[in-house]
Amino acid sequence: MVAIDPTMLMNIFLIGISGTLICIAVHFIPVGGAPAAMAQATGIGTGTVELAAGSGLVGLITSSYMYAYEPQASMALVMAAGAMGSAIMLASTMLAGGLIYAYGVAVPFASAQVKKDPITGQRQDTYVSKGTQGQGIPTICFVSGVVGAAFGGAGGGLIYFVLMGIYSPLISASAAAVAGVFTMGVFYVNSVIPSYGVGGTIEGIHDPKFRRVVPKDTITSFVVSLICGLVAVLIAGGMV
């Protein structure tokens, strides 16, 4: 077993924080689920978990790339690399989705949750087709999604950074694989919990649902991630 020391507690806390970052990230991403796939709701037409995990895992790849080529990199740098990778991944997903919604499905981009787009100030309600919850990916959703993906990538990068710090001295060559797989596990747990909270669809930061569900999802995610952090630190005890 490992003796309790401040570094260990700090590591557990950091993993708790990174899990919470991933959880918060999910709320920012405009997820429309199946209705959005039929252009009957605002957002990207797939599930929360797929989007959060897809962008988050790309963030994990970019942050591990940074770590592999610059092992002395600071925590902020690894997190920034993760954030950048995730944000680019989600932005390209939304761009491709937007092209299909605009030129393939031919719907005007409109949000049903707000009267005016908080960024462009353009009216939304007149463009929402009857019987739908908005269509496509309006500007506010796009921006919210990019910000959210950056949070998720930063969270993934942070877990990876902390775990590499714990495992590298013990199993030098295999640390990247073990840390990567564990990060993936924490990622999936923390992307599914908020998706239960939001009930499958959310438009982004402007959605009234955002304020309603963020607190309880965050608490859940923080507690669960702390347990994951404790487990991650104890695993190191078994490798000595």
């Binding site: 199946a34 978990v49 995990a53 747990v189 599914v192 998706s195 239960y196 009930g199 499958g200």
Partner: peptide, 11 residues
């Protein structure tokens, strides 16, 4: 679940 069955397999 509101999020589809795959989410529970992933968690």
């Amino acid at each position: 679940l509101g999020t589809g069955v795959p989410s529970i397999g992933q968690i």
